[in-house]
Design a protein around this nucleic acid. Structure first.
Length: 1148
RNA sequence: GGGCUUGUAGCUCAGGUGGUUAGAGCGCUACACUGAUAAUGUAGAGGUCCGAGGUUCGAGUCCUCGCAGGCCCA
């Protein structure tokens, strides 16, 4: 037996068997080895974190990655894929905190940092086994034997080197960012601390709508002209009046409508002109005062008159300057950039005035928008020469704040005793009073709103600038934007939109994290600001030694340094906290430098993997191009940049960004050329999967039940990768039944008959094209078209379209048309050229499909390939032919041979399929079953080309629909009835508005009109000149016949059933019954039989006699007898009009 | 609130550059076909192409504004 035959197929078992084969023979490793010396296709694995268990969405993401790596291997590239683990970061720390039942503050107190980090190190790799199992079972090929691990010293050393490069390029700096800060507790709060229950409380604050006086400049001239006054104010509302002295800008929305209103100040009663958002006018002005004569206003009037002078968009306010509201402190730099109107996207007209008072030191939005617009913050320089905000860390105004100096900005910071004094007034109120008196407040009122409080002290938090280390990504923003345009994003919108827009609005990357388990920032500083950035272990060692020798260290410091030096080369050597915190360096001026306590953002870890995975630049320089300091001779064989990466779309600002930023900043390069960002995997109702809700799909049981291939195939073909996938397990079952079931059946059919005939793959002695039937040449044309199409889809990173094309080919074309129509060729007669042609063709198709599908369904593809080719392996190896490979994953992509593609034939076959479908529907309508032969179908054809195309496939039509002949009626027969339709596409541009009229005329044309336009090529009707191309003419009817039409195709069927045809029909029925009986009796396909029928019907007898040979041949009978009386073992079977007794005996 | 994205049959999805009867598969109903058959064919039922405006002779497709879901940010 050349081919294995199967009774049924357990797809999960196929997965297991093939997996075992891969393991036993190191197929993955070899698939990389066979491409040694070939150009590389570089793939970066985005490292997962093994602190949680893998979910079905990981199978999805990894399938995408795997597909293109396998595809590119088939295309001749060497695809090395190094696995990796992401091991640092907040989620791990939180998990450990939870497990230990501690809070962040307990670290270093209840548990030493050393022990804590040890716990983290264990936790992070906890589910490694499950990850490895999932990876293996789903067939994701990635090198997990030698992965990069972000907590390893080598990895950290590479990161330090990168940070030092940034530092040396002045791209790493210490600045501040606005964070929730609790002055009472003296600490910043993380976002999750603010998410704790009870932190947001309703408070009543004194709020102020302040008047910012506009300066007369060229930009603001139009306002002054309209108002005819110098007193023009922009109104801005704040719930934190204490931040007003720090105001240095006003932010408006470019597209928001604003108005200029003439009115009076309600406190000073002075005439003023104010600017605010149009939508919010009603909040501050009563309808009664509208357009009331302003000259009638007197102090004390309840209704204040007002009048809209002008309406305009926010963009017209940009760059208008105003006078500083509370001029205690001036900006330390860029004074000319302060106190002007800027545009921001966060401005709303929900409350306030549609103008946002902007103090860069006390609001995150404010900070960001000010930075983007070059607006300086209001800060003071302290005794150390350091710039600090106007509120100190205890929450008090600095001394430069005049009468407010030393006051707490929030009344809650005062002791109860002070607050209970009769004269006590909160700072906000004092500021409000001052503004009222100075004609700078338009409205002061109490306002109740939620405000975050510190969970430990119960006091309100401040948004406050805290020190952080930043990467100056904004300095190279334009270059990052440019580089991004060279990346092939899939889908494109993620690149141009989500990512591109974000790059346009980039802010500096805040690198600092005040945590414990992560890569330490390699910067040491003296208290006075001398600092050093360390770029390698070697440099650290030498600085350490210098420090020890300097004599500037205390004994304890020196001892700790020495302890660290001692650890080098031992297991204990560790670049994490707390060990690095216990290193003390000495500055050039001889002062002790302490490590900056921050860790760096874990995203830097993963973004640095292109370098750190190979310990660049300390090792493996040959993997990197010379342009970045590597030593590779050939840039086509380097490991940088990546040709392809893929992760979830939620990584856009995560890994995708950090990869891009580091490569752009340091190497002026992209770090990936093609990227597929994948959508989410939701449950079947479109809800997010979560373990808590119990709707998460377990990848292990899914794979165990349906096998990896059906799981992968379903996920890929159901929705494009970037769309969200509604994961329905029934869909996998359907894919398994429909696609894999059909393909398996097709293989099994081939194997069954090829084995019977002793047919083996003929690799050399192939029949020439002329010996093949139309059907053979058609399916081969189809398979080459498929090869091209699938290749293009994979090249375009669209696996969904590739998979769907393969599926359509297998189900619709190969199985349902080619095999179905060719079955007789396989099961009848001796080995003729025709039969060989059928085997060769089917074998070719199956082998092609095995390869094309293998990137998506790697197990089944290999299973199919191996079943098809195993018996010719040795011969193939000896003769060096394509089937020499033991796995489909080593093969070279199927060559596309255009000479085999016959578009004409593909069209013909489409016509045949359409015609058969029409004939079937006619038979159905007239209740004539297909087993009943009919004389002919008549097909009206209006041109010669169609006629020829149908003639080619006429025999196929005849067998398929059981008619004796296909005939054509041509135009000149004169019996066709034609229909004319307007061709809108052609007519549209010509007639435009007159379309309807013209269409009406065309639809009303009679036979003469149609005849004339066909003959003359044009027709003049009602003043319109119609050309042949302006209309479609189709044959619609053949009078006197049964017709059916679809599009321009019409068929007519002769339904006359003669006696002869009726007998033939009966004979076919008999064949059918006998075949069923054979099958029920468990006979083998090859068994010969003797048949005896009871002769109880005239028609039957006549039918048998006339068609005896035909029946015998069909049912493999050596004899067919009719007897008058059949008793005993006969089976009674129902025919259409009578009962039939049949007896079958196996002929010896 | 912003950026991106999705909305077509009960379900999952197709529907270049606008062209007049909007398709497929699954599911349902009926009838056929079948020595690869847990497959297949034909027919039927099933649609306000999310809504409202607009552009156009003509809109599922283009524009504007909404509604609903999703992701990422604030």
């Amino acid at each position: 037996m050349n081919y294995k035959e199967y009774k049924g197929l357990d797809y999960a078992q196929v997965g297991k068997d093939i997996l075992q084969f891969w393991k036993d023979n190191q197929i993955f490793e070899k698939s990389v080895e066979v491409r040694e010396g070939a150009p590389s296709f570089t793939f970066y694995e985005g490292p997962p974190s093994a602190n949680g268990t893998p979910g079905i969405h990981h199978v999805m993401a990894r399938t995408i990655k795997d597909i293109f790596c396998r595809y590119k291997t088939l295309r001749g590239y060497q695809v090395k894929r190094k696995g990796g683990w992401d091991t640092h970061g907040l989620p791990i720390e939180l998990q450990v905190e939870k497990e230990l039942g501690i809070k962040k503050d307990d670290i270093g107190i209840k548990i030493s940092i050393e022990d804590y980090n040890k716990k983290c190190r264990e936790a992070v790799m906890r589910f490694t086994d499950q990850w490895l199992t999932m990876t293996e079972k789903m067939g994701y090929w990635v090198d997990m034997d030698d992965p990069y691990v972000t907590y390893k010293n080598d990895y950290i050393e590479s990161l330090w080197w990168l940070l030092k490069q940034l530092y040396d390029k002045n791209l790493l700096y210490k600045g501040y960012t606005i964070q929730p800060y609790s002055p009472a507790a003296g600490t910043g709060l993380s976002s999750h601390e603010l998410n704790m229950p009870g932190t947001y409380k309703e408070v009543k604050d004194t709020t102020v709508v302040a008047q910012f006086k506009v300066k007369l400049t060229g930009k603001s001239g139009y306002l002054f002209d309209t108002a005819d006054s110098d007193d023009i104010y922009i109104l801005a509302w704040t719930t934190t009046p204490w931040t007003l002295p720090a105001n240095s800008a006003l932010t408006v929305g470019a597209a928001i409508d604003y108005v200029l209103i003439k009115t009076f100040n309600p406190y000073t009663h002075l005439p003023i002109n104010v600017i605010l958002a149009k939508d919010l006018v009603g909040k501050y002005f009563s309808e009664k005062g509208k357009d009331v004569d302003l000259s009638t206003y007197k102090e004390g009037d309840k209704v204040i008159p007002w009048k809209v002078l002008l309406e305009f968009k926010g963009e017209h306010l940009e760059d208008i300057q105003y006078e500083q509201l509370l001029p205690y402190i001036q900006p330390l730099q860029d004074e000319d950039k302060a106190f002007r109107v800027i545009l921001g996207d966060f401005v709303t007209t929900e409350d306030g005035t549609g103008v946002v008072h902007t103090s860069p030191t006390f609001g995150a939005d404010d900070f960001r928008v000010a930075k983007a617009n070059g607006v300086p913050p209001i800060m003071v320089r302290d005794e150390n020469g350091k710039d600090v905000p106007i509120v100190d860390k205890q929450g008090r105004f600095v001394k430069e704040m005049g009468e407010f100096g030393g006051r707490f900005v929030k009344e809650e910071y005062y002791s109860d005793q002070v607050r209970n004094e009769p004269d006590f007034k909160p700072t906000d109120v004092l500021i409000a009073i001052k503004l009222k008196e100075e004609n700078k407040a338009f409205k002061v009122e109490k306002y109740e709103h939620p405000y975050p409080h510190c969970w430990r002290t119960d006091k309100p938090v401040l948004y406050y600038p805290l020190d952080s280390w930043f990467i100056a990504t904004t300095k190279l923003k334009d270059r990052l934007v440019e580089l991004n345009k060279t990346i092939n994003w899939n889908p494109e919108s993620t690149g141009t939109g989500r990512f591109g827009n974000w790059l346009e609005n980039l802010v500096d990357w805040n690198l600092s994290r005040s945590r414990y388990w992560g890569t330490p920032l390699p910067i040491w500083r003296t208290e006075s600001g001398e600092e050093i950035c360390i770029g390698s272990v070697e440099e650290l060692t030498s600085e350490l030694k210098k420090a020890v020798e300097s004599g500037a260290l205390s004994d304890e410091q020196r001892a700790k340094n020495e302890a660290f030096l001692q650890s080098q080369g031992t297991e204990a050597f560790d670049l994490h906290r707390p060990y690095v915190d216990e290193i003390f360096l000495v500055s050039a001026s001889g002062k002790v430098m302490y490590r900056e306590p921050d860790l760096i953002d874990v995203w830097f870890d993963s973004g640095a993997m292109p370098y750190a995975q190979f310990h660049f630049p300390f090792e493996n320089l040959d993997k990197y191009p010379k342009s970045m300091g590597g030593t590779a001779d050939d840039d086509a064989k380097t490991s940088f940049p990546a040709d392809f990466i893929s992760e979830g779309v939620d990584q856009t600002r995560g890994w995708f960004f950090t990869l891009h930023a580091i490569a752009g900043l340091l190497f002026d390069s992209v770090s990936f050329k093609n990227v597929v960002s994948t959508g989410l995997v939701l449950d079947k109702n479109g809800n997010k999967m979560s373990k808590r809700l119990g709707n998460a799909v377990d990848p292990f049981s899914t794979i165990d039940t349906y096998g990896p291939d059906a799981t992968r195939w379903y996920m890929i073909t159901n929705a494009e990768p970037w769309d969200n996938l509604k994961f329905n397990i029934d869909g996998i079952a359907e894919v398994q039944r429909k696609f894999f079931g059909t393909l398996f059946n097709t293989y099994n059919f081939y194997a069954l008959y090829a084995n019977l005939d002793g047919y083996s793959i003929e690799q050399f002695d192939r029949l020439p094209k002329e010996k093949l039937t139309e059907l053979d040449r058609w399916i081969i044309s189809k398979v080459f078209s498929l090869v091209k199409e699938v290749g293009e889809h994979f090249d375009n990173y669209n696996p969904t379209k590739a998979g769907r094309a393969i599926q359509d080919f297998v189900c619709d074309h190969l199985s349902n048309w080619y095999v179905r129509l060719c079955r007789r060729r396989f099961w009848q007669g001796e080995m003729t050229d025709d039969k060989r042609a059928a085997y060769q063709t089917l074998q070719h198709c199956l082998a092609a499909v095995a390869q094309l599908m293998s990137p998506i369904a790697p197990f089944f593809g290999d299973w199919l390939y191996r079943n098809l080719t195993e018996h010719v392996r040795e011969e193939s190896i000896a003769k060096n032919t394509p089937f020499k490979h033991t796995s489909v994953h080593f093969t070279d992509w199927h060559t596309y041979e255009p000479s085999w593609v016959d578009a004409d034939l593909e069209e013909s076959m489409q016509l045949a399929q359409d015609i058969c479908s029409l004939v079937h529907s006619l038979r159905k309508a007239h209740r004539i079953k297909v087993r009943q032969p009919l004389t002919k179908v008549l097909i009206p054809v209006l041109n010669e080309k169609i006629r020829q195309q149908i003639e080619h496939v006429a025999p196929i039509i005849m067998t398929e629909v059981n008619v004796k002949s296909v005939e054509f009626v041509s135009d000149d027969s004169g019996i066709l009835k034609k229909k004319i339709k307007p061709n809108f596409k052609a007519l549209g541009p010509k007639y435009g508005p007159k379309m309807k009229e013209v269409a009406g005329i065309i639809n009303g044309l009679g036979a003469e009109g149609i005849a004339e336009i066909e003959k003359e090529g044009s027709l003049v009707v009602a003043g319109f000149t119609l050309l042949r191309d302006d209309v479609e003419i189709i044959a619609e009817d053949v009078p006197g016949w049964l017709v059916a039409s679809q599009g321009s195709l019409t068929v007519a069927l002769d339904v006359t059933i003669t006696d002869e045809l009726r007998r033939e029909g009966i004979a076919r029925d008999v064949v059918n019954r006998i075949q069923n009986l054979r099958k029920d009796s468990g006979l083998e396909v090859t068994d010969k039989i003797k048949v005896t029928l009871q002769n109880n019907n005239e028609e039957l007898a006549a039918a048998i006699v006339t068609n005896r040979d035909y029946i015998c041949q069909e049912v493999q009978a050596v004899s067919l007898d009719l007897t008058a009386d059949l008793n005993g073992s006969a089976t009674e079977i129902e025919m259409d009009e009578f009962l039939l007794k049949i007896k079958l005996e196996v002929a010896s």
